[in-house]
């Protein structure tokens, strides 16, 4: 399989390594509370130190998401957000920023849009890669081919329950980085981290030289320090989405988002 040339995602991990830093990956559901608002929220996260932005495309039946991100998806759909809207948001972000952008969604909206068409349009909009939570490696060949032809990374998930055979396939299909799920469960905020991350990191390292990111249930600066020792980047999703939910009407939302991003990022301090 031909791999895409290095994207902004690949270059990010090179520069993190060179600077001996860890990356903060920030997720938000595009279009929540409204598509017009999203570029400013992304900009606030970038100012606060987010190294990579995951743009969630809302889907009506998000089986892998917990209640916080489910509600964000419902609000975004209510506000009229479509995959095309999210591509437009990406274009706006890209006009002012070189932050790496990863589309994060489910397969059906992408199939409906058209795999090849999405790959072309996403690349043109300045998106760097794609993660489809329900595109298992068994069913991913066509999708991966289309993305790679247009120079986009394909990120896959590995879980504590993934078998050695599956980890090998995940490593084989992933470019940019591999996303490790810190625990079994849906996305959401939790207080303590699963001890299953370390063995998973070890298993995936044995299968690939790609950078690793850990996500699911990470919400505190202390988590950043703990995980930053193990992997190249940490993903925070629900904690950002919850902050957006609670402050959607608040004029200080952007300021709060920036401050929270900075606070999380400072968690790496001890090890960076």
């Amino acid at each position: 399989m031909t791999r895409p040339a290095m994207t902004r995602i690949g270059r990010l991990f090179v520069s993190l390594k060179r600077a001996n830093r860890k990356g903060l990956i920030a997720y938000l559901t595009a279009g929540d509370p409204s598509p017009l608002r999203t570029p400013a929220l992304v900009a606030a996260m970038v100012r606060g130190g987010a190294d990579l932005i995951e743009l969630g495309v809302p889907f009506s039946d998000p089986i892998a998401d917990g209640p916080v991100i489910q509600r964000a998806g419902e609000r975004a759909l209510q506000a009229g957000t479509t995959l095309a809207t999210v591509l437009e948001i990406a274009r706006q972000v890209r006009a002012n920023s070189e932050v790496p952008l990863l589309l994060f969604t489910y397969l059906n909206p992408v199939l409906r849009y058209g795999l090849e068409r999405l790959a072309a349009d996403a690349a043109a909009a300045g998106i760097d890669g794609c993660l489809l939570t329900d595109a298992s490696v068994e069913e991913a060949e066509t999708y991966v081919g289309a993305m790679h032809r247009h120079g986009l990374d394909t990120v896959f998930l590995a879980a504590p329950t993934s078998t050695a055979r599956r980890i090998k396939l995940v490593a084989q299909y992933s470019t940019g980085f591999v996303y490790l799920v810190s625990r079994t469960g849906v996305t959401g905020v939790q207080d303590s981290l699963s001890a299953s991350v370390a063995p998973l990191v070890e298993a995936v390292r044995a299968a690939t030289d790609l950078p690793l990111a850990v996500g699911f249930g990470i919400s505190k600066p202390a988590h950043m320090a703990e995980l930053g020792r193990l992997v190249e980047a940490v993903v925070v999703g629900s904690a950002f989405v919850r902050l957006i939910e609670r402050n959607a009407e608040n004029p200080t939302l952007e300021t709060q988002l920036e401050a929270f991003t900075r606070e999380l990022k400072s968690g790496f301090g001890a090890i960076a």
């Binding site: 068994e138 069913e139 896959f156 329950t161 993934s162 078998t163 599956r166 799920v181 079994t184």
Partner: peptide, 22 residues
């Protein structure tokens, strides 16, 4: 063997569900 009826069926689930499915 992959659960396909012609092009249909298959296994389109998040990775966390793959181990229990297998």
């Amino acid at each position: 063997a992959g659960g396909h009826f012609g092009p249909y069926g298959g296994r389109y689930v998040p990775e966390v569900l793959m181990a229990p499915i297998e």
